[in-house]
Amino acid sequence: MSLLDWFAERRKQTSLNLTGSSPFDKERQVREIADGLWQKCPACDTLTYTKDLQQNWQVCPSCGHHHRITAPERLEQLLDPGSWQPLNEHLAPTDPLHFFDQKPYSERLATYQERTQLKDAVLTGLGNLEGIPVAIGVMDFRFMGGSMGSVVGEKIARLTERATCDHLPLILFSASGGARMQEGILSLMQMAKTSAALQRHRDAGQLFISVLTHPTYGGVTASFAMLGDLILAEPGAQVGFAGPNVIEQTIGKGKLPEGFQTAEYLLAQGLIDAIVPRTELRKRLAQLLSMHRPRLHVSLPAISSEALTLQPML
């Protein structure tokens, strides 16, 4: 028996369905889920050994359901080992409005920072994807629902500017509930800021690929996520501007069309280019990148050099 066969066999044995198990088994399973040894797939109820799920990039081996993945895991999957070079790690959120709801915003930030070991909801940096240098940003939904505040906006804008300047293709993975309410109007303005930087990237003739992951909503959808030259999505990802609850308030509960706002729905509506399963993402991104080799485009003259009038070359 080869090692691969052994893994396959074990996976078959361990991918048990809860229904039909004895009460004793059930109890043991509950305990082991609590221990983090096993995870139950919300889509097909299959139990999978946590390590197997991790090895399959959090995609259920039984039904293909895409579980949420953290930003560090995402980078590990996509980038060539040792090529990750984080940028602007020193940017940290503050509490400009002294926002207080049930808890002070500053307290919430500290909690999430401790829990996720991240400073805010996005990681940005440079790396190689199958040997191709890229600028990449990955949102992490664990950090306050991936909401976009000043740090997220600034890091994405800086990454984009770096990509433009270095003639690098830009890849952004979104996963967000939308703008971060606790930073008020300043969060809204991050939609403008990220779009501004992307406009320059576009002007310079550089590529931007947006990858939509579950879930992407609100101010993130209505800014950089939908501005990709090419837009990909993971299977089953829910993406929209207004959340389903908000829409149901106007049309009534249970009246949303089947599969509304899923990646498959967006594809049928012509809003995205393709759906790519996570396990194929690295290969498919590399394929697209390889067909868009960086153009050494002459960037727009900076404003200070405007006085330099172009002389016709005769």
Partner: peptide, 19 residues
């Protein structure tokens, strides 16, 4: 916030204007 608005790409429409 409506079904038709989402189907027609409300997010994309706003984003494109910003850009």
């Amino acid at each position: 916030p409506g079904v038709k608005a989402e189907a027609e790409g409300q997010g994309e429409a706003i984003a494109t204007n910003l850009q």
